[in-house]
Simulated scan of single mutants.
Amino acid sequence: MKARVIAGIVLLIVAIILALFIAMAYFNPSFINNAGGSGNATGSSSCPDLQNQVNTLQSQIASLQSQLQNYQSQLQNYQNIVNLQDSQTIVNNYAINEPASQYYGIPFNAQYAGYVIVNVQSSTTTKTQVYIVENTNNAGQIVSQTYSIGSGGVVYFPVLPGQVTVYIGNSDFFNGASQTVTITYVY
């Protein structure tokens, strides 16, 4: 809908500019004098002027069409963001080796509100935990609940714009753990 409105506005502007140039050519005294027979009998002095105006208008139309395509592309990008259709892989099958009772943080910057999908798998512990800390642009610091996911699982966290750190933990008091992590930011 917005793309049609933008296209309509751009076409209206092109039509107004075109009408102004036609009016200028029509009411230009040298054009009228040449058309009336005074001056050059062939009227050739007005033809280059008209051709220059046509060339200028065609160039402006091409420029406006390019701008319209750019705006349509931007609009599509924003619609994808609003509809949570874009994503970014922060880490993919990232290997973590943690000592007992330790957490490993993976930071990234969230430009838009959305959510984070954290997928953790471990073959060495059944005491994997996940939580996030957000330092948002407007709401300060937000610390999520800690989720125990055993030897593996997927956790979804809503996020606001700002710095986000995903923490993967090993809550085993005695043994270290090896984990594989994939984090996807959807916005």
Rank of each mutant, 00 (worst) to 15 (best):
V116W: 01
G152Q: 05
F21Y: 09
G176L: 04
P48C: 04
N83I: 03
Q58E: 11
E134A: 03
Y104A: 10
Q111K: 07
Y94P: 05
N109S: 02
I17V: 15
Q163G: 09
Y71Q: 02
A100F: 00
F21T: 05
I32H: 09
P161W: 01
T124F: 02
K2F: 05
L12D: 03
N93F: 03
S148W: 04
I32Q: 07
M24W: 09
T125C: 07
A35Q: 00
T124L: 03
I168M: 14
V130C: 02
G169F: 13
A100H: 08
T125N: 09
V155C: 13
N138G: 12
L64F: 14
I13V: 11
Y104D: 06
I32V: 06
Y185H: 05
I22F: 15
Q88W: 00
F21V: 10
N93I: 00
P99D: 10
I81P: 02
G153C: 14
Y131W: 05
N40D: 15
I81T: 12
V91H: 07
S63Q: 15
S122D: 05
Q179M: 14
I16T: 02
F31D: 11
V5R: 12
V166T: 02
Q179S: 10
A25F: 09
Y78N: 00
A19K: 08
F31Q: 05
I32M: 03
V14K: 08
I17H: 02
T184W: 00
V186H: 07
Q163P: 07
N175H: 03
S73I: 01
Q69D: 12
V143D: 02
I106V: 15
R4E: 15
L18E: 02
N77E: 13
V14W: 10
V155A: 01
I168W: 10
V164R: 02
